[in-house]
């Protein structure tokens, strides 16, 4: 069991007038090869939770285990934790600093102690994976387009070859094409590189198609957990906490209420298409 979170609580500004309980006794286990969709409204605690998984925040209470080792114990360094658990922040292109794309992407691996002669190979591998032209590696990252910058930033994390990759709203502010590219990159990492993925989002549509398991947060607690089908059963509850269900799920439910013979558990466009074609054919 690679990641286990036990009884995690976190208080922002502890002991001050503005003190706020951001996480309340959260427990979670993540297996190898899973694709977790972490959903929650703004302020639900999802970003706070993922920042604990690679030791950027220290729990007020509770423990985080990586392969059974407490990440804040002496048996493991935080650097090694951060190499294994990669983290792509929101709007990661605002953290670019390198003079060249190469320098920026090589920053992580270099800090992790990858020898100089392997760096070029690593950087090329990462750029290739995110779908950027190798020819861009000597350009300044600041000359690139928004979508390209985002990909460079993601490549900078992937280049450390983490086993577990956390992405916090990786599609925020991208156009539909950029969004599809980033999501298919994440899906490729999951399937081809066997990376465990934790995708943080408040968009059901993005997450529903890719995740193998959904974790729903509200007010600093995990309120729902399970396969997308199971979680979307609670459509009314999800609406109440301001999340809603994917549009296709709504469409199929509406069709069922109208008396059509459809299976309302589907939630992807492809599956919904199949259901609708089925109705049309039986007519």
């Amino acid at each position: 069991m690679p990641i286990r979170v036990e009884g995690l609580s976190y208080i922002y500004n502890a002991g001050q007038p503005m003190e706020k309980l951001a996480l309340n006794n959260v427990s979670l286990a993540i297996e190898d090869g899973e694709f977790i969709g972490l959903i929650g409204h703004t302020g639900s605690g999802k970003s706070t939770l993922v920042q604990h998984l690679n030791g950027l925040l220290k729990p007020t209470k509770g423990r985080i285990y990586l392969d059974g080792v407490d990440i804040h114990s002496k048996e493991i360094t935080l650097r090694s934790v951060r190499q294994q658990v990669g983290m792509v922040f929101q709007y990661p292109e605002y953290q670019l600093f390198g003079e060249t794309v190469f320098e920026d992407v090589a920053f992580g691996p270099k800090n992790m102690g990858v020898p100089e002669h392997q760096l070029a190979e690593r950087v090329e591998w990462a750029l290739n994976l995110v779908g950027l032209d190798i020819g861009l590696k000597d350009r300044s990252p600041f000359e690139l387009s928004g979508g390209q910058k985002r990909k460079v930033a993601i490549a900078g994390v992937i280049a450390m070859q983490p086993r577990i990759l956390i992405l916090d709203e990786p599609t925020a502010g991208l156009d539909p094409k950029g969004r599809d590219e980033v999501l298919s990159l994440v899906s490729r990492l999951h399937q081809e590189e066997k990376t465990t993925i934790i995708l943080v989002s408040h968009s059901m549509e993005d997450i529903a198609r890719l995740a193998t398991r959904l974790v729903v947060m509200a007010n600093g607690e995990i309120v729902l957990e399970g396969t997308p089908e199971a979680v979307f059963q609670h459509a009314d509850y999800l609406e109440r906490i301001g999340l809603g269900v994917p549009q296709m799920k709504k469409l199929l439910q509406a069709l069922q209420e109208q008396g059509f013979d459809v299976h309302p558990d589907h939630y992807t466009i492809e599956a919904a298409e199949g259901e609708i074609v089925k109705i049309l054919e039986t007519k």
Binding site: L56, R79, R82, Q83, F89, N111, M112, M160
Partner: peptide
């Protein structure tokens, strides 16, 4: 935080 996540 972002740079620390990259081992800075």
């Amino acid at each position: 935080k972002a740079q620390m996540a990259r081992g800075a």
